[in-house]
């Protein structure tokens, strides 16, 4: 993990704080999306990258966070900003029983069970109209209309918080336990690490962070409905961001999310008019190539030699 390189986060932080006021509304909006995905990818990485419990259903936490905020407004007329507390709380409360059930499964089966859980939650939110307004969704009044900077600094704070939480956790003994569970769960249990308990310790902050991003999404977009906050593509985007940047690395997910959002927007908005409707095809192809040739992500390939001391695979990465 980034040990002594304090100047890097400092520079990034200064750029992130000082640059946006000089940008137009569109670019501020893009940066808001970047920061939101940075927070979510970082959160996902805690459970998926460090603890090895890759979930294909993390959109559940995102949606629950968003609905935590939205339902406050829907039922009691409370400002959805309180969702910043209620959203993550709801996500965590629901995550705990989910974890208790799904953590009994391993590997691919865990991936699938999370997918099933997420889809189940989506269907419940669609059908239970009295609770969630169903497919009508929730429309709220926005606090700031044209002004984007308050939203930006809020989501920047969320992203920073998520990085901080992950950093502190990974510096503590929890971090070592998480990695040991990922590397070999049986060995970890043999050494007396209760794996379900520690997976839970990874799940709770993960659900909280993703839920927080969801609550922010509700406030920023001012409209949610189950199919926009629970779809498979949100879970997949989280994972693919992490894959792109590097699972199990500290800066990887943030980097991956940044590249993911900017690249898809670049292809859509700037290359799109030139290359036409194939822009998304190109994006998907890039994803396939990254997973095939950089399976540990851009940041992860640096540590490859260390991790692969028993592997036979040569290291092929530029900039050595």
């Amino acid at each position: 993990m980034a040990k002594k390189s304090w100047f890097l986060p400092a520079i990034l932080g200064i750029v992130a704080i000082a640059l946006p006021p000089f940008l137009g509304g569109y670019f501020q909006h893009i940066l808001i999306l970047v920061m939101m995905w940075v927070a979510m990818a970082t959160g996902w990485n805690l459970l998926g990258g460090y603890c090895g419990q890759a979930s294909l259903g993390s959109a559940a936490f995102f949606g629950l966070g968003a609905y935590g905020a939205g339902m406050l407004y829907l039922h009691w007329g409370i400002s959805p900003w309180w969702g910043v507390i209620a959203g993550p709380l709801l996500a965590i409360v629901v995550a705990i029983p989910i974890g208790l059930v799904t953590f009994r499964l391993r590997g691919g089966y865990f991936v699938l069970s999370m997918l099933a859980v997420c889809e189940t939650i989506r269907i419940i939110f669609l059908n239970w109209v009295e609770m969630s307004a169903g497919p009508l969704g929730i429309v709220i009044e926005r606090t700031w209309g044209m002004e984007k900077l308050p939203y930006y600094y809020m989501v920047l704070a969320i992203a920073a918080l998520s990085l901080y939480v992950v950093y502190r956790l990974m510096k503590s003994k929890f971090g070592y336990y998480f990695v040991s569970i990922r590397e070999d769960q049986d060995a970890a249990e043999g050494l007396g690490i209760p794996s379900t308990k520690y997976k839970m310790y990874a799940l709770i902050p993960c659900a909280g962070i993703i839920g927080l991003a969801g609550a922010f999404y509700m406030n920023y977009m001012a409209f949610i409905e189950p199919n926009t906050v629970f779809p498979l593509i949100i879970s997949a985007t989280m994972i693919l961001s992490v894959m792109l940047g590097g699972p199990g690395t500290f800066w990887g997910p943030a980097l991956g999310a940044t590249i993911f959002v900017l690249l898809s927007e670049l292809l859509r908005a700037f290359a799109g008019p030139v290359i036409g409707t194939i822009h998304y095809l190109i994006f998907a192809l890039i994803l396939v190539l990254v997973i095939m040739f950089l399976p540990n992500g851009i940041a992860g390939e640096g540590d490859k030699i260390k991790r692969l001391f028993r592997g036979k695979k040569p290291v092929y990465v530029g900039g050595e």
């Binding site: 990258g49 890759a54 590097g246 699972p247 199990g248 399976p295 991790r307 028993r310 592997g311 695979k313």
Partner: peptide
């Protein structure tokens, strides 16, 4: 390929 995530 030995990856961090087995689910690649």
């Amino acid at each position: 390929v030995d990856t961090i995530l087995p689910q690649t």
